[in-house]
Deep mutational scan, measured.
Amino acid sequence: QTQEFDNEEEARKAEKELRKENRRVTVTQENGRWRVTWD
């Protein structure tokens, strides 16, 4: 699953929550947008 964010702060917040659920999370930056991908 993927979700896009406008800034790193929001993306990192989402990453932190997903990691609490023991998910594999990848955060990438593309064209000024932050993308959080998880399984």
Rank of each mutant, 00 (worst) to 15 (best):
Q1R: 11
Q1A: 11
Q1D: 10
Q1K: 11
Q1H: 14
Q1S: 11
Q1Y: 15
Q1P: 06
Q1I: 10
T2E: 08
T2D: 05
T2R: 06
T2F: 15
T2V: 13
T2I: 12
T2K: 05
T2H: 10
Q3V: 12
Q3Y: 12
Q3M: 15
Q3E: 09
Q3T: 08
Q3S: 07
Q3W: 15
E4P: 02
E4Q: 04
E4L: 15
E4V: 14
E4K: 03
E4A: 05
E4G: 03
F5H: 02
F5M: 02
F5S: 01
F5Q: 00
F5T: 01
F5D: 00
F5P: 00
F5N: 01
F5R: 00
F5I: 01
D6C: 09
D6I: 05
D6G: 05
D6K: 05
D6T: 07
D6Q: 06
D6A: 09
D6S: 07
D6L: 08
N7E: 05
N7P: 00
N7L: 06
N7K: 06
N7V: 06
N7R: 05
N7A: 04
N7C: 09
N7F: 05
N7D: 09
E8G: 02
E8P: 03
E8V: 04
E8F: 04
E8N: 02
E8I: 03
E8M: 04
E8H: 03
E8R: 02
E9G: 07
E9D: 11
E9A: 14
E9F: 10
E9S: 09
E9V: 09
E9K: 08
E9Q: 09
E9T: 08
E10Y: 04
E10G: 05
E10T: 05
E10M: 08
E10I: 03
E10H: 05
E10R: 03
A11D: 01
A11F: 02
A11Y: 02
A11Q: 02
A11C: 06
A11S: 02
A11H: 00
A11T: 01
R12G: 03
R12A: 04
R12Q: 04
R12P: 00
R12N: 03
R12E: 03
R12T: 04
R12C: 06
R12S: 03
R12K: 06
R12D: 02
K13G: 07
K13S: 11
K13V: 14
K13L: 13
K13E: 12
K13M: 12
K13A: 14
K13H: 12
K13D: 12
K13P: 01
K13W: 13
K13Y: 12
A14P: 00
A14F: 15
A14I: 11
A14K: 15
A14N: 03
A14V: 14
A14T: 08
A14L: 15
A14R: 15
A14S: 08
A14Q: 07
A14E: 03
E15Q: 05
E15N: 01
E15H: 03
E15I: 07
E15V: 08
E15S: 04
E15K: 02
E15P: 00
E15A: 15
K16A: 14
K16I: 13
K16S: 12
K16P: 01
K16F: 12
K16T: 12
K16Q: 13
E17K: 09
E17H: 09
E17P: 02
E17G: 06
E17R: 12
E17S: 10
E17I: 11
E17Q: 13
E17N: 09
L18S: 03
L18I: 05
L18T: 02
L18Q: 03
L18R: 04
L18D: 01
L18G: 03
L18V: 03
L18W: 06
R19H: 10
R19I: 12
R19N: 08
R19K: 12
R19Q: 11
R19F: 07
R19T: 08
R19P: 01
R19Y: 06
R19G: 06
R19A: 10
K20W: 04
K20S: 10
K20H: 11
K20D: 11
K20G: 11
K20R: 13
K20E: 12
K20F: 07
K20I: 09
K20Q: 12
K20V: 08
E21A: 13
E21Q: 14
E21I: 13
E21W: 08
E21S: 12
E21K: 11
N22Q: 07
N22A: 08
N22F: 14
N22M: 07
N22S: 07
N22V: 04
N22P: 03
N22L: 05
N22Y: 14
N22I: 04
R23W: 14
R23Q: 10
R23K: 14
R23D: 05
R23P: 09
R23E: 08
R23C: 13
R23A: 13
R23Y: 15
R23I: 15
R24E: 12
R24A: 09
R24I: 14
R24S: 14
R24P: 07
R24W: 13
R24F: 14
R24D: 11
R24V: 14
R24T: 14
V25E: 00
V25Y: 02
V25R: 00
V25N: 01
V25L: 02
V25Q: 00
V25H: 01
V25I: 06
T26G: 03
T26C: 07
T26P: 00
T26E: 11
T26K: 08
T26R: 09
T26I: 12
T26D: 05
T26V: 13
T26F: 09
T26H: 09
T26W: 08
V27E: 00
V27N: 00
V27T: 04
V27S: 02
V27Y: 00
V27L: 07
V27H: 01
V27M: 03
V27C: 07
T28P: 00
T28V: 11
T28M: 06
T28D: 04
T28A: 06
T28Q: 06
T28L: 07
T28K: 06
T28H: 07
T28S: 13
Q29I: 11
Q29H: 14
Q29D: 04
Q29E: 14
Q29F: 15
Q29V: 12
Q29R: 09
Q29M: 13
Q29C: 10
E30V: 14
E30K: 06
E30S: 10
E30I: 13
E30G: 04
E30M: 12
E30Q: 10
E30F: 08
E30Y: 07
N31F: 05
N31G: 10
N31I: 02
N31E: 10
N31Y: 04
N31K: 08
N31H: 06
N31S: 09
N31W: 03
N31P: 02
G32K: 03
G32Q: 04
G32V: 02
G32S: 03
G32P: 01
G32M: 05
G32R: 02
G32E: 04
G32F: 02
G32A: 04
G32T: 03
R33E: 03
R33V: 11
R33L: 08
R33D: 02
R33I: 11
R33N: 07
R33F: 08
R33K: 14
W34Y: 03
W34M: 00
W34R: 00
W34N: 00
W34D: 00
W34H: 01
W34F: 04
W34G: 00
W34T: 01
W34E: 01
W34K: 00
W34S: 00
R35V: 15
R35F: 15
R35S: 08
R35N: 08
R35H: 11
R35C: 10
R35T: 14
R35I: 15
R35D: 04
V36W: 01
V36S: 01
V36F: 01
V36Q: 01
V36G: 00
V36Y: 00
V36P: 05
V36I: 10
T37S: 14
T37D: 14
T37K: 08
T37R: 10
T37I: 12
T37A: 10
T37G: 05
T37P: 01
W38Q: 06
W38S: 14
W38M: 10
W38N: 04
W38E: 13
W38R: 03
W38D: 11
D39P: 07
D39S: 08
D39K: 04
D39T: 09
D39Y: 13
D39G: 08
D39F: 14
